[in-house]
Design a protein around this nucleic acid. Sequence first.
DNA 1: TTAAATGCAAAGGCTTTGCAGTTGG
DNA 2: CCAACTGCAAAGCCTTTGCATTTAA
Lengths: 145, 145
Amino acid sequence: MSELKQEALEQLKAKGIRITPQRLAIYHDLSVKRHHPTADDIYQSLKAEFPAVSTATVYNTLRYFKKEGLIREMGFGELVRFDLAEDEHYHVICETCGKIVDFHYPYLDEVEEFAAQMTGFKVMHHRLEFYGLCEDCHRKEKDRQ
Amino acid sequence: MSELKQEALEQLKAKGIRITPQRLAIYHDLSVKRHHPTADDIYQSLKAEFPAVSTATVYNTLRYFKKEGLIREMGFGELVRFDLAEDEHYHVICETCGKIVDFHYPYLDEVEEFAAQMTGFKVMHHRLEFYGLCEDCHRKEKDRQ
DNA sequence: TTAAATGCAAAGGCTTTGCAGTTGG
DNA sequence: CCAACTGCAAAGCCTTTGCATTTAA
């Protein structure tokens, strides 16, 4: 087993996740690629190693990982994508080509706190995404005019 | 026609939207109820007035309104919901019962600006939602323990 | 008048479910 | 050993599409 996969295994064990080859591969895929895959991206990638893998396994695993807090869901409206729930960060998404760029900014604790005070909710987390045009698409749009 | 519906009509006309009874009713519904309906909520509500209305009309209209900037989409992962695109505000969502509460906070212009500088994107807008427990569900959870 | 919207039905895409067989701890 | 996970197939939901008909401007 590769060193990285060994590492993924340790991380899953540490969280008390029951290990299966499929789960390990999914987690490893998410850890290494960091490309905000869709469920189908993961399914396609998994088929290389497990030709008989089923979509059910992918969806069940992703749901389970999410419940256990290992991954987060992102995506408003369009396809659901998944991201490792490690460091806090936000995403900037190009509305033309779909490119996604990670973007670090201090976690908005004060806004969460404010939300809690205004609404009486116990606020646990939030999701923030930015939308616009990436440099390439922005340039192309200007050239066209 | 009710005064409110008349008002909805003026607003649609002002935006250059072609008026149909169905569109008027959908916009009116969104204006008056402010309950962040799903497409099906709107469809159900519309059937009272137009028994023969089709889901296609609802979906097409919502897509069109969204393209024209009259409404916004909300909802991460779960069901897509719609909200009038008037005043800027954010949402706090109860993860137990699904209750949604609007919450006003200054638009995060500086964060958008920062995102633009860090990523090179032309950032046009963002979406922010808070998740947690509403007062009721929070209380019930504490009682259970 | 006519481009655009509607209703209907069918198709499509993504996700979940039931179940029998397999497996990790 | 046995609860939990897997694969497979089927079902379920939400949403979109094609087409004939109607309608707003």
